[in-house]
Amino acid sequence: MNAPDSKDSWQYRELNTRAPSLSVLSDTLIELAEAGHPVAAGTADLQHSNGLVGFARKFPERFVQFGISEQNMVSAAAGIATTGMIPYVATFASFLGLLACEQIRMDVAYCAQPVRLIGHHTGISLGFYGTSHHATEDISTTRAIADLTVISPADGAQFAQLLRESATYEEPIYFRIGRGHDPAVYDSQEPFKIGKAKTHAIGKDVTIIACGYCVHGAKAAMKTLNAKGHSVGLIDMHTVKPLDEEAVLKAAKASKVILTVEEHNILGGLGSAVAEVLAENPAKARLKRHGIMDEYALIAPPTHLYRHYKLDAAGIEDVAASLL
């Protein structure tokens, strides 16, 4: 029997009513447009998957349907931005952060255009759709691109807050979001700031540094382990770049172990970003990276994959417990 937030299968038709972080995208863009921000949106044949159909109906003159042409969409978004609009373009993260990576680098980041790239259904959240639809390298690729901010929100409430800030943020941004079924971690009043990690607690034994979907499981694991008498903390590193190094070092001074958790290859992602900081700043803590261990995920419904790869609450608890 699965928990209510653990759908083994899903229907796109029902997605918008069941997908908090994806309806957040459209709802927040509508809110920003109504508040007078020059936001525009576009997608590559996925307006029902990412919910932008809502924005398209409300502001058809500010919406561009690109069809299945992700590279064209990214280059065109940069062109749109030169006219003073702020385009938010969305498609599956695998096709955005990987297929259109060079267009992101050349036309968006290098040209310093305020484009907001929304890579949704990231990580292994597309489950049995398989490797073509998984994005376990998109943090690596985007993090290596200069002048590009990389954000991996934990849930819909946090995504909405950071989207609001993005309307006036100077740099281009790559947002990496989940399937829309991401369980809530925060209430809508919680404040967040791009580049500033959310420190839940610093643990004397272990501090988990997580991003995206994994924050939910990490928080549950922290609670369980603390209830058993251990001292476990959690930092939600929603902005992977620029990384909040101060938050990392503060934890590294107080904890025996830093455990990074991400729905991404352990090479190049959040774990690597944290490792870079620790390598250059000697601290007490040793580091353990947890995520996809440089492999391609199996075929399975997403929740089965999270369980298999120990990215759910029980799995993260297991990994953290092994470090105690």
Binding site: A40, S75, G79
Partner: peptide, 19 residues
Amino acid sequence: SIGHALSNGVGMMHGARMQ
């Protein structure tokens, strides 16, 4: 990077319409 410019121009035309 050859092949991008027509897309950049397409975007400028969409932006011009919006503006």
